[in-house]
Design a protein around this nucleic acid. Structure first.
Lengths: 137, 137
DNA sequence: GTGTCTGCAAACGATTTGCAAATTA
DNA sequence: TAATTTGCAAATCGTTTGCAGACAC
């Protein structure tokens, strides 16, 4: 399954000096097309039917490469599995405790600087919210 | 290693209808005495010398029981490992990217209710912050 | 004695690594 | 042809489970 954003996918990869192999384009294209914050396994399962020779190892390696160069961000909202998001902006993630769906709910929450202890420097923040989504309430 | 808060430890366990076995008292006492947000493995390593027959399984089972009944909270600030905190208040955790230490930095951040999507109900929030602590800056 | 608790060993699931074959420049 | 990339199989690591013996009421 090839993303409809082939040109954009290629451009983004080249911007990061990543060779746009078929596998890498498929993984990044999937993340661009699907805002479901999938796990590596979910991405593999989704792509596998149309790319039978794709291996899970390649999906894992590719995602790590993407995270390392800042092309995608990883989301730790549940222990034991990493999720991935092509939207690298600092936003809040909402996990529905009933259906398990993950949504982007709002832009970054600002930390009151006076509340950060003396001498601490902040590089990254991540806020997760759990509850019920509008479909499950 | 027995906590100096033996009476408090016993009381807290009984409040939750948990039988205060030696192992459980040791694990909860360790969390009360050490605010380092240890992993199960760290707790096991710390207790093991003075409790040679303690098994890691028991530490894991005990911690899960504590979390299930709300006696301690688990902290997911890093993928692949759970950390534990005897302070069950909703506060922000700070992880130093240099030394790896985890600190409590401030009380809960309030989410502006108008920013939560229509029809979503919020049950829990968790904010994590990464940066350098005052010792590592 | 009956039910709970403990702890060993094995199972498990997500992720990483070693390495050789395949692909690309 | 040299360098990169892929993908299988095996390893790793944190955690859970099965189960038998030990312990508590």
């Amino acid at each position: 399954m090839v993303s409809e954003n082939t040109a954009l996918v290629t451009q983004r990869l080249l911007e990061k000096n990543i060779r746009p192999s078929l596998q890498r384009m498929a993984v990044y294209g999937y993340l661009l097309d699907n805002h479901t914050h999938p796990t590596a396994d979910a991405i593999y399962s989704a792509l596998s039917p149309s790319m039978p020779t794709l291996s899970k190892t390649t999906v894992y390696n590719t995602l790590r490469q993407f995270v390392d160069c800042g092309l995608v961000q990883s989301v730790t909202i549940e222990d034991g599995e990493l999720r991935y998001d092509a939207d690298t902006s600092n936003h809040v993630h909402f996990k529905c405790v009933k259906c398990g769906g993950i949504y982007d709910v709002m832009e970054k929450i600002e930390l009151p600087p006076e509340k950060i202890p003396q001498g601490f420097s902040v590089e990254k923040t991540q806020t997760n919210v759990w509850g019920k989504c509008s479909l499950c309430c």
